[in-house]
């Protein structure tokens, strides 16, 4: 059984009194431990699909199963709890809490887990080490470079050891050097930990780093390319 199963998934928005079909009867399966890039032109439904996979938006119709859970059956709070256990989300603009240090930002999702202080500390330190920021614990986001901020955001997404790592254009706001560093990190996570990753990108070069590229057009699956 696939980790993610989308069957006839639809998402409509009302815009100016008209229904816009952002996702149109999408069928897609993503395997556990895979590394998938979602590509497509603007408005093709990439980010909407990512939001549905993360449980931060709801499908209009169709079925979406993630790790056997039908997300449509969960209410707002159940969905939030489910996210805290199964999803790590990396935003394009990092979205770190500006008044918290790198350590505290990474610690945030663990506040929702019943852990001892020592265990929480161990996990935060480990997550920051895994993104090569062991010496930046006390730095506030404004004291970090864009690349470092994004690495903190990745550490925050990984610290709960999520089933699924979702990233919405994680390199979209970074220069080439920092983008490569983030992609190297994703590649290492996938190879060494078997982390399932689904990443939205506009950049062909970034997409080539993934095992598989899923292309969407007008809310439908256009094609799937598997890297050699």
């Amino acid at each position: 059984m696939s980790l993610i199963e989308c069957r006839s998934l639809c998402k409509d928005y009302q815009r100016g009194g008209e229904a816009v079909h952002v996702l149109d009867h999408l069928d897609l399966a993503i395997e556990r431990g895979s590394y998938t890039a979602l590509m497509g032109p603007s408005g093709s439904g990439k980010t909407t699909l990512l939001n549905l996979l993360a449980g931060i938006d709801r499908a209009t119709s169709g079925h979406l199963l993630v790790d056997g859970t039908d997300l449509a059956q969960l209410d707002r709070n159940q969905l939030a709890l489910w996210r805290s256990r199964h999803v790590g989300y990396v935003f394009q603009l990092y979205n770190l809490v500006p008044v918290l240090s790198a350590y505290e930002n990474v610690e945030l999702p663990l506040l929702l887990h019943d852990l001892t202080t020592a265990e929480r500390h161990r996990r935060v330190v480990e997550a920051l080490e895994s993104v090569d920021l062991a010496t930046r614990h006390g730095h506030l986001p404004r004291q970090l470079s864009g690349g470092q901020e994004q690495r903190v955001a990745i550490a925050r997404a990984l610290v709960t050891q999520p089933t699924l790592l979702l990233a919405d254009e994680p390199t979209g706001d970074l220069d080439r050097t920092n983008a490569d560093a983030v992609m190297d990190l994703f590649g290492r996570l996938h190879r060494e930990r078997g982390q399932t990753i689904v990443m939205v990108t506009h950049d062909e070069a970034i997409a080539r780093r993934a095992e598989r590229t899923v292309r969407l057009e007008k809310g439908r699956l256009a094609n799937v390319e598997v890297a050699r």
Binding site: A80, R85, P98, P109, L112
Partner: peptide, 16 residues
């Protein structure tokens, strides 16, 4: 608002 959106994404509930 954006900070709270991030917290919600991380799994904070309405009550949280």
């Amino acid at each position: 608002a954006r900070e709270f959106a991030v917290l919600r994404t991380l799994g904070f509930t309405d009550g949280g």
